[in-house]
């Protein structure tokens, strides 16, 4: 199959992290089927997928813009908005639900005044609900930033998140 050498689009800006994205795309020969892998790389590098990123990736992989957007919004792991400084993921898997994950989520919702998937106005904390972390043996489970905590109580949760809210870091 003959390949047409379109001029490769250039990265949205000078940010060095685009090199990581470029190397992922190069590794897969800029094939359209590498869209999801590339989006993973972008999200890992930048924390989220913005329009510029989607436009760049779509153009580089020869994927229609609407398809790129369709894929990015189909998979809940991808986010189109930047996350807060801290993220708190409450597991809502069955085991956690049976052990009161809803109460944990409720406590955070009222404390942070946001719904799952949103970030507080000051950009400090993002609240997320996960389908299942696979830590069912430790239900109910919560992930504070990258760290998994098991058998979490509403009090412990509130205390931990309150710490984030008060710090200026």
């Amino acid at each position: 199959m003959a390949t047409i050498d379109f001029a490769r689009p250039t990265a949205p800006n000078q940010d060095k992290r685009w090199r990581i994205v470029e190397s992922t795309m190069r590794r897969v020969g800029h094939h359209p089927r590498a869209l999801i892998e590339t989006l993973h790389t972008v999200q890992e590098a930048f924390g989220y997928l913005d329009r510029d990123a989607l436009r760049y990736v779509a153009a580089s992989l020869h994927v229609p813009l609407s398809r790129a957007y369709g894929v990015a919004t189909f998979y809940h792991y991808f986010t189109l908005k930047p996350a807060g400084q801290h993220t708190c993921v409450v597991c809502t898997g069955t085991a956690c639900y049976i052990k009161g994950a809803n109460q944990l989520l409720g406590a955070l919702k009222s404390m942070l005044k946001v719904e799952p998937g949103e970030t507080t106005g000051d950009g400090k904390v993002s609240l997320l609900a996960a389908r299942c972390l696979g830590s069912c043996g430790l239900a109910p489970a919560v992930v504070y930033d990258q760290e998994v905590a098991g058998k979490v109580s509403a009090e412990g949760l509130r205390a931990r998140v309150a710490q984030w809210m008060s710090h200026d870091a």
């Binding site: 329009r51 989607l54 436009r55 229609p64 813009l65 609407s66 398809r67 790129a68 957007y69 369709g70 919004t73 189909f74």
Partner: peptide, 28 residues
Amino acid sequence: AHTWDLKGRGIHVRVITDLDEPWGSSET
């Protein structure tokens, strides 16, 4: 042209043009 596609999933699926931008400003 592949201007159209679907975004989201389940009951939230919508037809979109380009990056969910107004049809009138579509590049494709």
